[in-house]
Amino acid sequence: MQLQTQTRSKVIAVTVIEDRIDAATAIQFKEKMREVTKAGPPRVVLDLCRVQFLDSSGLGAIVAVKKMLGPDRVLELAGLTPTVEKVFRLTRMDSIFYIHPSVEVAVAHAASA
């Protein structure tokens, strides 16, 4: 599970460099996210533009990361591909995340905020 991070003054963008987050990799994803977000800005944007497939285990891991960040930090999502978007929509988990069309939009949003 490879994650690429880019830290700005107010936001850390984490891009998942894998084509899937599934039952075989969900725990690894959660652990890597814990490492890369341990320190840094309160706002975390998870860029999923390369992730073509997410199952319920992967979804559970993303929710777990949101909980792990606690009430003083925020996890936002960007770049949902069609199947990934479908999983969020059908489980109504799209209602608990701010979802940006792309990480660029998310970061620009941070700069103007």
Binding site: G60, K67, G70, V87, R92, M93
Partner: peptide, 25 residues
């Protein structure tokens, strides 16, 4: 049954989505 998302942060569901997805599709 779909677990509720309308809860406090620490109570958000991390599982229980699978059968709902299966039945939906």
């Amino acid at each position: 049954h779909l677990p509720s998302a309308d809860t406090a942060l620490e109570d958000l569901p991390e599982g229980g989505f699978g059968w709902h997805l299966i039945y939906s599709l």
